[in-house]
Write a protein that binds this DNA or RNA. Sequence first.
DNA 1: GCTTGATCCGGTAACGTTACCGGGTGTGTG
DNA 2: CACACACCCGGTAACGTTACCGGATCAAGC
Lengths: 358, 358
Amino acid sequence: MKSSNNAKKEQQLSGIKEIARRANVSIATVDRVIHDRPGLAPSTKEKVLKIIKELNYQPNIHARRLSLAKQFRIATLIPVRSKETSFWEGPLKGIEMASAEISQYGATVEKFFYDQESVASFQQQANLLLKSKPDGLLFAPAFMDESVLFVQKCQKLGIPYVLMDSDLPGENSLAYIGPNQNASGSLAAHLISYLVEKDDSILIVNISKELDDQHHLLKKEEGFRNYFRTHRWDNQILKINISKTDPKSIEKGLAGMFKDHPNIRVVFVTNSRVSNVAAFVEKLDRKVILMGYDFVNENIEYIEKGVIDFLICQKPLEQAYKGVMTLYQHLAISFPVKKVTFMPIDIITRENYSFYNY
Amino acid sequence: MKSSNNAKKEQQLSGIKEIARRANVSIATVDRVIHDRPGLAPSTKEKVLKIIKELNYQPNIHARRLSLAKQFRIATLIPVRSKETSFWEGPLKGIEMASAEISQYGATVEKFFYDQESVASFQQQANLLLKSKPDGLLFAPAFMDESVLFVQKCQKLGIPYVLMDSDLPGENSLAYIGPNQNASGSLAAHLISYLVEKDDSILIVNISKELDDQHHLLKKEEGFRNYFRTHRWDNQILKINISKTDPKSIEKGLAGMFKDHPNIRVVFVTNSRVSNVAAFVEKLDRKVILMGYDFVNENIEYIEKGVIDFLICQKPLEQAYKGVMTLYQHLAISFPVKKVTFMPIDIITRENYSFYNY
DNA sequence: GCTTGATCCGGTAACGTTACCGGGTGTGTG
DNA sequence: CACACACCCGGTAACGTTACCGGATCAAGC
């Protein structure tokens, strides 16, 4: 209260000011060395750096963000929620959560959607997006070749981009946030290895219109087969590709398969369309173990009923949320970002689904 | 550039200032209504509230935290890492992460530890903690009765406390962050139901010195048994309580059990001591399926070897981290907090453990 | 009529950081 | 010798919010 004169000297200034005081320079100079801005004598730069090290200075992120009230625009490009599966609702929610959080700090998020079954729609939306010249991009690729071309364009335009859900190896994105698909296939195989007897067959089901381009399905299958190979399991592994995604076609394909192979005991569906398979399996007169991907409402219904036994899930909402946030941190406060973030591989059953955080 | 006079009027002020301008009051007044401080005419309060609603005003959290540079002290009280299990390393790391994050904003974290096997050490540390008069407390209870007494003291002293890992039902904590133990027991049972044949027996293993007080073990067991009961499974369920926690005693207890019951096929250990059981099971001449709790190094080694088949895990690090952060948000910016946060129930296997985020 | 106190409200410093503006010093050029 | 132009650095407004200080108004009590 009284000795305010003395106190002024004694009290620890914090942050940049304390550094400035100790180095006998102005805070502007300290700021210059922190951000490596030009126009500094090497000697003073060194002096300040030394003190920064000594104090183990950590910038106050709140002050920084408050000061940097710059405006920028982030664009997102993901598949649209399709009639057949609601998977992309999750990422969309993640984008919207992140958007709400950062919109008050001067960032805006523009969302673009493409049809996962149509290359043309992808190209159209990609071009639209590029025309809007965003400052950053979150991108969930589906079509390999076209996606590579697209991100190369982004790079030329100097637009940093973050990939989610599926990586484009070889390209240099700002970051990748998503699953390790190979490992998730192996996990499925591992689980199944507990569940099969000697003579049981296993059926792999791929459901997608553009199979060649759905790279991630193949990777999962590869991880799956790889597990059985390396563990010298010799169960029969069957496979069916269903390229027409309406319920009837799916049912037809499966019916044929089950007629020809009566000892199918486990069915592994490589994407979120597993609910369609569940609808078929439910009507069967014997129990088969059913496994598939993704925490979407259609699937959860069958988890509750016990028709689907396991779902493998990769936090789709969180992926997108983290993607936008990564972009924001990069643009807003030039935070160093993690190059690759593999999402955990979660196993969902009837007993734990209600505690799952997407 | 030029028309700065006009611009001043046109440009959207943001936040509190814009509200003040529209309501024709000062920003101080707006602040008063936002924080429901006394000394306001009802009419002006209403007027301002209306505009806040209209603008859907969200306070800028960075500005708020910057402004509130108040100092406070958070205390934590958790079991010390024991010789037998490194489980509590996880929460400790979580506390330290949170501590590092908030220490730059004027919060300090003081850590207290007690011996999970000794009521006396708990009481001693609890008293020490109370003497330091912290502003908030993160508490992982073990001994039911003593813990209840302790939190009641906290309440009298006006110290808000957050519970983690294990709840104290009936007491009014600021929040609970942890698992739903009952459900995790059911999940274990569900997994096991896939793995057993008709005549297989299941062995439940409780390892703890103070069994009566280890409420959570009992809850898990209850959830486990409940699953089998409601699903009318009629496998034999055996159980052994081991109250001496050294490796030899554990081995001895198990050996007796396995001699008497040759058809034990699945072993379910209700806590992180499963690695001790693994050491025994490994030497057996036949494969049993082993299941237990917690992502700790000892257990992961056996996961890698394939001796432990499944671990159930509840993000111990994140629990503690969230606990400290909840306290911080409550104290620093009087943020509304979630009363109960159930952690997801994660299933760890050899295939996915490397992607697990604690 | 003057004081007292209550009620309501405005002004403003401060939180730590950023980035712009401009001032001082020195070296080279005409 | 004056002038220009680097080069180096300090001063300071601003970001949105909080909380303290004190001013204005009005009614009640002497």
